[in-house]
Design a protein around this nucleic acid. Sequence first.
RNA 1: GCUGUUAUAGCUCAGCAGGCAGAGCACUUCCUUGGUAAGGAAGAGGUCAGCAGUUCGAAUCUGCUUAACAGCUCCA
Length: 634
Amino acid sequence: MMHIKLANGRKADFEVGANIEEIGKVLAPEQMANALGGKIAGEYFGLHHPVREDAELAILSFEDKEGKAIFWHTSSHIMAQAIQHLYPKAKFAIGPAIEAGFYYDIDMEDTLNPDSFAAIEAEMKKIVAANIPLERFSLSRSEALELVKDQPYKVEMINDLPEEEKLTFYRQGDYTDFCAGPHLLSTGPVKAFKLTAVTGAYWRGDAKNRMLQRVYGISFPNEEMLTAHFEMLEEAKRRDHRKLGRELDLFDIFDEGPGFPFFFPNGMVLRNQLENFWREEHRKAGYQEIKTPIILRRELWENSGHWDHYRDNMYMTQIDNENFAVKPMNCPGGMLVFKRRPTSYKDLPIRAGELGLVHRHELSGALHGLMRVRNFTQDDAHLFMAEEHVQKEILDLIELEKKFYKLFGFEFAVELSTRPENSMGTDEQWEMATSMLQKALEASGLPYKINPGDGAFYGPKIDFHLKDSLGRTWQCGTIQLDMQMPERFELEYTGADGEKHRPIMLHRTIFGSIERFIGILTEHFAGAFPLWLCPVQAMVIPISDAHRDYAKKVEEELQKAGIRVEADYRNEKMNAKIRDAQLKKIPYMLVVGDKEAEAGTVSVRARNEARGGVKDIAACIADLEKEIADKDLF
RNA sequence: GCUGUUAUAGCUCAGCAGGCAGAGCACUUCCUUGGUAAGGAAGAGGUCAGCAGUUCGAAUCUGCUUAACAGCUCCA
């Protein structure tokens, strides 16, 4: 016998080997109608799973992340079965659950497109209606290879597994898949589903391999949830920074410059506010500011290692028959600034910030609004220090990053990226640099995960990732520890001992790229920026032409106080002016008519309708100034 | 770069299956002078992304190029 305790506190003894479904029926019968699987010691399983020892068990439903994964994984098998029925020659690769939905990678001659979906969905509907049970079984390697002999990708996967690995299969009717699971007990619960896209994806994620067809889908236990999901996607589309950038006249990208964004007057206000704030915070944190050229001689890039490791992404040019390159990173210029004169240990740490415009030749298919462009401004800084400074400097940096993200209300995920394949330096240097970053991360208490092989070619890094409106994450902040550049550029400082020493260098960004950050910011606030960032902070709305002069007076008073104000003198009804200001997401509308003109007041309407009332002009200015100074998030 | 989809007015889109290019919003002018999300009328605006081809005739069919979107790869 074994002892099972449930999350609801109930417990009982069971025969060893009783499965999760049987246990659940005894201990939590009321949950079993919606049960999809179970979780034991952090691992999740299907209801099939036999339990063999004492355990604490949680029953999983669609509400749980793991429950969704089980549901979607089975949905992917249902789709694969339908595709097998319609395209018997299809070769199947992998078909997992993802953060929202599932996909299956398939290799076949027929090319699928969105018009193919209706037939596949109809076939899936039959499979769901038949409520086919899923059966789990294990095979020896030779039996397994015999079973999948017509499926080359499955053969390759089996051959790549270690000899002793248990090979499990799931069978549902006429479809059998080599698969670790877990899965639902049958196909019936997948009541509502939709195929969403078909795209190309390289086998095993390697661009050198064959490209397979990846069919994406999403599924839910009922139609209402499916509808709600697509409504949520519609809402996300309304927040898309590319759309809002055009609508709010902030920025855009034209055919004339793919990946090279334009900023319009409204966008420049936003951008300058961010840069002003950045400068202020960095002054307080002991930074200097520099600016280095965007075109520099080829030899510099050879020296820095960019020529060997980054050449494909660099734009080249010639000046007077000599070779130059447009900078893809700011560091080499920063090195020259450090080297311009001898440095004493007393000067360290030196923190040199640069809002540096870099150009990188990104692949055309990778471009994405402001999030992925070919020229962008990094809020870069290079910190030069002795080894004893390193821990404190990294910790201070982590605090500075947190301060920035907290101000905007961003959630962020932290990763520690380690040595990539194509990189410079010795193993010893990399280990040392990585452990210094990791030590600081541990001390900071921030949760993080390791991202193996994703470091820069010159050193490991701590990355800060922010989410866009669809939940896609983008790297923004980064803290990189570099032991290569100081060596390559022979940087040194004179120590207290009179000897020359090599400084350690940190590269870092907070916004990452101002462009990307503005993209994230736009989606995060759905274009309704906090007051201090708004291109237009207040719109004066005269009710009729008779109030034009008073409106002008209000406009001028606010302008004198440094508030970004406009007035709408168009020959339109007040309602129309309010509507337009509201659509432009202007935070405050100051309506003025006879009453206000007489009393010297304004009638304040807030875009979020949370604040308002009739105020003296002076009181209105004071309130706006306070909110601007507080950088209040409402 | 790769796979799939797409490209019609500043924006959002219609134009069924080849036969004289359309709507709403925005813009200009006129009328209207109004109290918290759209007052009315008229006007102007397009080499249907570009280049070839098929056809008596192409926005519509075919090919190539360019750009965008989704994903892969890559990255801030």
